[in-house]
Design a protein around this nucleic acid. Structure first.
Lengths: 158, 158
DNA sequence: TATATAAAGGTCAGAGATGGTCAGATGAAA
DNA sequence: TTTCATCTGACCATCTCTGACCTTTATATA
């Protein structure tokens, strides 16, 4: 195998495939020791090869008995929707337009009515105005919060 | 089980689950002896894993025949979650604390896992920092968005 | 009754054990 | 040569565990 990163990736994916759980659990130190590298190399592999984009979710805990868990997550049909919303630029990101999108997501059964109403809350101009934010700042925040929220939804299929 | 704290937590929760009372009673010394650790380790576990945030209440008595009682706090329907969150004042509104509350709401089946994860998005400091908001402003917005979102949930049926 | 002693539990600082981050070195490929 | 991916190491953040010292309560004894 060409390089460490590939080796570690392959190893972890094998573990994941063989595991009866929906995740694998490793210790950073141990894994680094196994591959004779510095611990931070593990973080590099996780970042590059087990990112959400690639369909993985990583959790960890520090301290004595710490661990790293890698989940394989289902990529649902929500992905294209998120991409649409993410790609909207400033002018296009208008609450009324977003509400329309959310409505369609609900109709397509991508999200529930309750989820839709939670997401609509995030794009309510009034809230940001009350806190004295400029229109631009508000738009940016709304955009970011919404993208992030949809991103989270993609992860929660397990 | 990786570490002592987890073991002791698991043990106590098992006791609690099996108990016919609404609390369990233990002795610090005995428990420490059972797990072959110093007594103060027990206090650590209680502090970290049986805090009010996590839905537990701990009482104790010193002296001969002393004891420690751990209660699971029932959710009071007299004080809805929305009100609890709304009533948090500045200092108390900390993302870590809110996350704990959301976790409990999920455990109590008030919200789904997906809804919980949507709501968690709203309290991610990083997003607000990236947009250049002050900590205070961010807190205010988080608080308002969360309250508003929970309010919306009340209005909507599945 | 007043006091001493024993038998609990509480607090806190610090050591130990993990994992995280980031800048920069190194290496591979275009 | 330039650029991008890989890899390292120093430094940081967080969680766990211990031990010394303190407070409270029950009980025995003067």
């Amino acid at each position: 195998m060409a390089n460490l990163t590939d080796c570690i990736e392959e190893y972890l994916k094998k573990l994941l495939a063989l595991s009866s759980e929906r995740y694998v659990e490793v210790q950073r130190r141990q894994l680094a020791k196994k591959f004779a590298c510095v611990p931070s190399q593990i973080n590099y592999v996780l970042e590059r090869r087990f990112s959400p984009d690639r369909g993985y979710l990583v959790e960890s805990r520090r301290g004595g008995g710490g661990w790293i868990r890698i989940f394989r997550i289902e990529t649902s049909h929500a992905r294209p929707w998120r991409e649409v919303i993410e790609s909207l630029n400033g002018r296009e990101f208008e609450p009324s337009r977003i509400r329309q999108l959310l409505k369609r997501m609900y109709e397509e059964k991508i999200i529930s009515r309750r989820e839709s109403s939670l997401l609509e809350t995030v794009i309510k101009d009034r809230i940001y105005e009350e806190k004295g934010l400029s229109k631009n700042k508000a738009r940016e925040l709304q955009h970011e919060l919404l993208s992030e929220a949809l991103e989270e939804l993609l992860k929660v299929n397990y």
